[in-house]
């Protein structure tokens, strides 16, 4: 599984890096995002709604993303 370590990066870089990585994924692919930026969790909810990709929080700073 592909992983993105965005810890230490501030908004909007974690989501920008996620978007770039997702553009190289196929439908059903899983990706693990690590981010400790306080804006990431709420932004992932909106990003999921807008893109249709699924976001499953694993911990407060790790998120499993599934491409639609």
């Amino acid at each position: 599984m592909k992983e993105i370590d965005a810890r230490g990066l501030l908004c909007p870089l974690p989501i920008i890096n996620l978007g770039k990585a997702m553009s190289q994924c196929e439908s059903g692919d899983e990706l693990l995002l690590h981010s400790d930026d306080p804006a990431t969790q709420s932004d992932l909810n909106a990003w999921s709604r807008m893109t249709g990709n699924t976001v499953n929080p694993i911990t407060a700073t790790s998120f499993l993303i599934v491409k639609k």
């Binding site: 908004c11 909007p12 804006a39 709420s42 932004d43 909810n45 909106a46 990003w47 709604r49 807008m50």
Partner: peptide, 11 residues
């Protein structure tokens, strides 16, 4: 406010 509404907060 944006976070509570689950609106994108960046950009």
């Amino acid at each position: 406010v944006l976070a509570a509404m689950q609106v994108l907060t960046h950009g």
